[in-house]
Amino acid sequence: MLRLEGLSKRYKTGDEALKGVDLEIPDGQVIALIGPSGAGKSTLIRCVNRLVEPTKGKVYLGDLELTGLSSGALRKARRKMGMIFQEYALVERLTVMENVLSGRLGYVSFFASWTRKFPKKDIREAYRLLDRVGLMHMADKRADELSGGQRQRVGICRALIQDPDLLLVDEPTASLDPKTSRQIMRLINELCAERGLAAIINIHDVLLAQMFSQRVVGLELGSIVYDGPPDGLTPEVLTRIYGEEDWEATIENVDDDDEVEEDDGELVNVGIAKRTGGNE
């Protein structure tokens, strides 16, 4: 599905963010990418869709080599990779609907996007997604009127309406409170399961990573230092990734999430997420 071969990135400032990363992700697998800040997590997922141009190495999506594409072909390829951002990165002064529909920009002409004339099927899909995340009634609101959790759900819709094969998720919960974080992670997980999507989720919260992924990859100083199941994150492994610290308290037993959601109108489908929600 997605294959990275010897991926390296050196910034103009001389910082080496990635040092020859090899990684392979099969169809439908959700992996969590953990590591301290500055480990290169963000750079790694941006190198996949080439928002950041890798300096060396290759990226394959299926049989397609992304790293060699011309800019036109790259745009086409990007349509198959949905991206979800840390600070939501919604266009704040556009409506929720426009933000969701902007996920289809790669498919429509400039003129159609200018006049906001999207195909009927796209609009129906946008409404369906908004309904799925419980924001149907917000469609005409401006994005900056929404709460953090709501914005991230709009961000998820924008990524999904692209009809992607792969989700690139960059710190989706970094600016959210713990409860909303779980809801968002669960939602991403459910949606990946529904559609059989593969996903790379950058996350610094080890607990969330263990809870919601089938595989954890630990990155440190641009190199992979751990690649294995969530249960394998022993104190020794965490020390290798993050450095010396008392890790016992962090690694709790994180089987099913037993938190009961109140009906705060924030989230609709609740509670069935398991961290083995994929479809291997």
Partner: peptide, 13 residues
Amino acid sequence: HSQVEAIEATGAS
């Protein structure tokens, strides 16, 4: 810039 980056990531011209 992140808002523009998000649009770029969708494959927009």
